[in-house]
């Protein structure tokens, strides 16, 4: 419950920041009756009201639950305090960020291979010859599919310049 109140606070702050952003939009005579800041300001106000509503709803439900004889919190409602689980989930974003940072440097093929092996390891499969083969094979598959078949100019990275320098 305290978590939900904090979320309401965050949303309210977001509404405020968005309002300030909307207010800073340059005014143009070409915007029409409702300017470029019209909808954004309406949205900011709506979000502000809704975040207050969310806080109110949370408080009401908590009071209802405190009454004698009220049903205990269902298991699904308590799930949001599984911090180690959340940290594990955010690890995916971390791996993704690593991939995005390495992509322009190492190039697509190598980065995808690293991504494949990192995610298999992160999902609980200890690195082995098998996962290594999967990563290499998968990397080549994705490379052929996207770069050659679909003609997407994915970054080649430093290795490409090394090879072309040697040639």
């Amino acid at each position: 419950m305290r978590g939900m109140l904090a979320i309401s606070g965050v949303l309210f702050a977001l509404a405020l920041a968005y309002w300030l952003g909307a207010d800073a939009i340059p005014k143009s005579r070409l915007g029409g009756m409702v300017g470029a800041d019209g909808l954004p300001k309406l949205l900011a106000v709506s979000l502000g009201l809704l975040s207050a509503g969310l806080a109110l709803q949370t408080l009401l439900e908590a009071r209802k639950r405190r009454r004698p004889g009220a049903a205990p919190l269902p298991a699904s409602e308590t799930a949001d305090t599984d911090w180690s689980g959340h940290a594990k989930a955010m690890g995916v974003i971390g791996i993704g960020a690593g991939f995005v940072l390495l992509l322009p440097v190492l190039g697509y093929v190598v980065s995808v291979m690293l991504l494949l092996i990192a995610v298999t390891a992160y999902s609980g499969r200890r690195p082995s010859v098998q996962t290594g083969l999967f990563a290499v094979g998968g990397g080549i598959f994705f490379y052929v599919l996207f770069v050659h078949l679909l003609k997407v100019p994915l970054p080649a990275g430093v290795f490409a310049t090394l090879f072309s320098g040697a040639a």
């Binding site: 697509y108 494949l116 995610v119 990563a135």
Partner: peptide
């Protein structure tokens, strides 16, 4: 599952890049 997870993420990233060639 581990292989599937890895492939999905690689597929999503590659597909996204191809929309706009954009990091």
């Amino acid at each position: 599952r581990p292989y599937l997870n890895a492939s999905i993420l690689a597929l999503v990233f590659s597909g996204i890049y191809s929309i706009n060639n954009s990091i």
